[in-house]
Computed example of a mutant assay.
Amino acid sequence: MILNHTVEALMERRSIRSYRSEQVSEEELTDILKTGKYAPSAMGRQARHFTVIQNKALLADIRAAMQDATDDPFYGAPTVIVLSAPADARFAPEDTSCAIMNLMLAAHSYGLGTCFIGCVRDVLRTPAIQSRLKLPEGYIPYSCITLGYPKEHADAPAPRRTDDVSYVR
């Protein structure tokens, strides 16, 4: 297999579920957010919004609102980035997902950990929480990621399936 640095990063990145408490540097955070802004978006509209949550009280309130969660859905990460888009945007899930992947890969390149968190979406959309996210008018949260310094190295990847590709030529 031919590998380059980008392909290696794609194959090495893992979801991190245990973080150290120190905050990500502003320089790293700025660079990581910039990569999210350069992600593909439908028709180049860039109809998405990034909310960086580093407020411990807000993160605690989101955790508390998770009625069926016994564990921290953010795994102790000091930063959570919420991706939102207009409620009526046809490709909002795709646009926000593309941005999230860029964020996760950029974070990995800095030695930072991330994890895609979908289980909090409904809580993020409650009026009590959504009003605190500083979203543009008409935007709603779609998903988020955790961001921080990993406590430990991630496990090696599980073997990949070999039956999940079809060619139509």
Rank of each mutant, 00 (worst) to 15 (best):
A57R: 09
I32G: 00
P159L: 12
F116I: 11
P93Q: 11
M104N: 03
A69M: 10
C119E: 15
M104D: 03
I117H: 06
L59M: 13
I2V: 13
D61H: 11
S131Q: 14
R20L: 07
A77M: 06
V52Y: 01
Q67K: 14
S84P: 09
D88L: 06
D61A: 14
M11W: 06
A154V: 05
E94L: 09
S84N: 04
A65E: 08
I32L: 02
A47I: 01
I16L: 10
P136D: 14
E27Y: 08
A57E: 13
H108I: 04
D163Y: 08
V82D: 03
I117F: 06
P157K: 13
Y38H: 15
P157R: 13
R125K: 10
C144P: 11
V168K: 05
N102V: 05
E26N: 11
S41L: 04
S84C: 09
I129K: 03
L112F: 02
Y167F: 13
C144I: 03
V82I: 06
A106T: 02
E22Q: 15
T70H: 08
A64E: 15
Y38G: 08
D164I: 05
A106I: 01
D31V: 04
G111H: 02
S18C: 05
P159F: 03
P150N: 00
S143W: 02
M104E: 13
T79Q: 03
L112D: 00
A47T: 13
I81V: 12
D31Q: 12
R169F: 15
D155V: 07
P40T: 03
R161F: 14
G138N: 12
A89P: 07
E137F: 04
P150W: 01
R169A: 14
E27Q: 14
M66L: 08
R160L: 05
R17P: 15
M43N: 05
D164F: 04
I117Y: 06
Y167V: 11
Y38I: 01
V7Q: 15
S18W: 04
L147R: 08
P86Q: 02
M1T: 11
R14V: 07
V123W: 03
